[in-house]
């Protein structure tokens, strides 16, 4: 697993407090991990801070379904 994945996993888990083993690249953030829309936005802020991303646009957030989607986005935009 990539370093980015592990960091994403850690952040997501700090918001959701679920069994960390449940967080896999293919996990759906809403359906599998139980995050509602507010929690998802909270996680986004955490990701922006952790990866020093200025602002993840709403269109990009809407496209994020799985953990792998986050990892891809971060790897593309990390500064």
């Amino acid at each position: 697993m990539s370093d980015v994945f592990n960091r994403v996993k850690e952040i997501v888990n700090s918001y959701l407090e679920i069994d960390a083993d449940k967080i896999k690249p293919e996990s759906k953030i809403a359906d599998d991990l139980g995050a509602d829309s507010l929690t998802t936005m909270d996680i986004v802020i955490g990701l922006e801070t952790e990866f020093n991303i200025e602002e993840i646009p709403d269109e990009a957030i809407q496209k994020i379904v799985t953990i792998q989607d986050i990892v891809d986005f971060v790897e593309e935009h990390q500064s």
């Binding site: 507010l38 936005m41 909270d42 802020i45 922006e48 602002e55």
Partner: peptide, 10 residues
């Protein structure tokens, strides 16, 4: 303002 938590108001 971007860093305001969505939970701030509720």
């Amino acid at each position: 303002p971007r860093r305001i938590s969505p939970y701030f108001i509720p």
